[in-house]
């Protein structure tokens, strides 16, 4: 099936990602050519250290590409002003939030910064968006809590609420289910899936929960040592791409149930 290119929202051209040291450049992945379309629920899968976070940080302008380029629509990402970008793309990172006395409400309200005036005064529309974001993420009851009082699962939902309040078409999340138990992990996946389905958001996330990710996402970016490919579950399966994700002696991809299973002795 030929892919429809008309609604591509993020694309990369021969992208090389990694870190620029003082003397040498550490390239983690090269020649990444992928397309992400409007309304995609895209999950990035790969082993530890394969470059998932680096990839997400590069397509969100948190760090620059080392080679090639990232495009947002037709425009090169590096050329887009941060203020304009902030109305198109919001992020949920794994960065630790410094200790402060911000309440959950204040934290979510910070997501309105691209729209507020010079002192950050909230208009009734801002309040509306904040309330909506907190309702969607089921964090209303936490409104007056300080964020350091929250559990990992609650904090993750609050951070997603902040990204939602930012009212952007694209939301990029780096391992939003890290540190979460299975119940809370599924809750996050269901929330994100609903945002894609009902709000027509484009969501890109990385996750180590491969089996859940395969089930919920409609498109997958697979990062392995040799290549970075993307496609639907079916097309990747056809390509036998899942077999390269992990060394096969421990984990295997079971085609019939479309899940990874532990290799029996």
């Amino acid at each position: 099936m030929e892919k429809d290119h008309s609604n591509v929202i993020i694309s990369t051209k021969d992208l090389g990602i990694g870190y620029q040291g003082k003397k040498k450049m550490t390239l983690i992945q090269r020649k990444i050519n992928i397309e992400i379309c409007q309304g995609d629920f895209m999950v990035v899968l790969g082993r530890n250290g394969i470059g998932k976070s680096t990839f997400l940080r590069t397509i969100t302008k948190v760090q620059p590409p080392l080679e090639g380029a990232v495009f947002l629509g037709q425009k090169e990402l590096q050329a887009i002003d941060d203020r304009i970008l902030s109305k198109k793309m919001s992020i949920v990172l794994t960065d630790r939030i410094p200790d402060s006395q911000l309440t959950v409400f204040e934290l979510v309200a910070l997501g309105r910064q691209p729209y507020t005036n010079w002192v950050g005064k909230l208009t009734s529309e801002d309040y509306q968006k904040i309330t909506w974001a907190m309702k969607e993420t089921d964090t209303q009851a936490l409104s007056n809590c300080h964020f350091y009082e929250l559990s990992d699962g609650q904090l993750q939902r609050v951070l997603i609420a902040r990204a939602l309040a930012q009212d952007t078409e694209i939301i990029v999340l780096d391992e939003p289910t890290a540190h979460l138990d299975l119940h809370h992990t599924i809750k996050i996946f269901q929330l994100l899936e609903r945002l894609v389905r009902e709000m027509k958001k484009t969501i890109i996330l990385s996750s180590h929960q491969v089996n859940l990710a395969i089930r919920y996402a409609n498109n997958i970016i697979l990062m392995t040592n040799n290549r970075v490919i993307s496609g639907s579950r079916a097309s990747l399966q056809e390509d036998q791409a899942f077999d390269d994700l992990f060394p096969s002696e421990i984990l295997n991809f079971d085609r019939t149930i479309e899940q990874f299973v532990v290799q029996k002795k």
Binding site: L85, S86, S90, D95, L102, Q113, P114
Partner: peptide, 21 residues
């Protein structure tokens, strides 16, 4: 810098993503 100061409470990466120079 009122807004940047508040945004910086979440760290530089978040602040940047919220349009702060």
């Amino acid at each position: 810098i009122f807004k940047p100061l508040n945004a910086l409470l979440l760290g530089e990466n978040y602040a940047k993503s919220m349009g702060i120079h």
